[in-house]
Amino acid sequence: MNWWPVYYRLREAREGIARNTWASLATVVLLTLTLLLFGGFLWLNANLTQVATLLERQVQVRVFAAEGAAAESLREPLQAVAGVRSVDLLNGEAVYAQLAPVFGQETLMNALPVDAFADSLSIELADPELGGRVVEDIRSVDGVGEVIWGQGFATTLYRISNGLQKGGLVLIVGFFVAALLMSLTAMQLAVLNREVEIQIQRWVGVTPWGIRTQFLIEAFLLGLFSSILAGAVFLYLGEVIQRAIAALVPFMSGQLRSPMLVIGIVLFTGPVLALIGGGLASQRAIGTGDK
């Protein structure tokens, strides 16, 4: 097989990028910014959803036994209530131990004595959204004293979580379309800058596909380079942000989504966006038919 045409196209694409330094640079900057915006939103959305889910899991019903009743004896009747997934006995010491990593052992000990908390039962609901009804059923169980459930907080969290899931998808599609338009603009700039080359190629008889191939290879290379740049930024910022959050909100440490998935998506999206943009831009400049 004669590899010269393939080698020539690759070499010409590389030289084309080098020859049009400023247009290539502008394309890379525009594409990188687009990918940063797109990827940044993806990561933000993933983490907000993660945080909402995490907080949602924290919304548990806490039940204290009525005077004269033992918390342990309520375990079985509560487990039988419809909508209850699990019932855990929390003795005061366990609650104290749970709070220690959040506030720090020393700070907690200075503030509260070790026996500050009474025994209680922590109830996980099967569907937190139906919490109101289940809590009413729990209150009616014999031996149940005080029931603590943050209804307002829970309702707000479900609303945010649902909003993020539904609105996030719309925004991700919107960001992708915006990224596509920016990529098209960037590639159009690159193609416009190469008008003379396109004309010469047409005059000597290169087919429209032959001309377009070179632009597609160039677009792919520019897109790949942009996505590597954007990926590197995410890798760096991802670590910085995760460290900052771990320092500021210790209980969130290790709970944030790694930026690796976003980096993977960005690495894939960059060349694809550039290819689509390059294809559309060159189609406009060269046309589809072999005129």
């Binding site: 020859r19 003379v196 004309q199 047409r202 000597v204 008889g205 290169v206 087919t207 429209p208 072999d290």
Partner: peptide, 20 residues
């Protein structure tokens, strides 16, 4: 005939040079 095939047997020159 496709334009590209036609133009391969032609040499086209203009008033403007259009060099790279």
């Amino acid at each position: 005939v496709p334009g590209s095939r036609l133009r391969r047997s032609m040499g086209i020159i203009f008033q403007t040079f259009r060099l790279l």
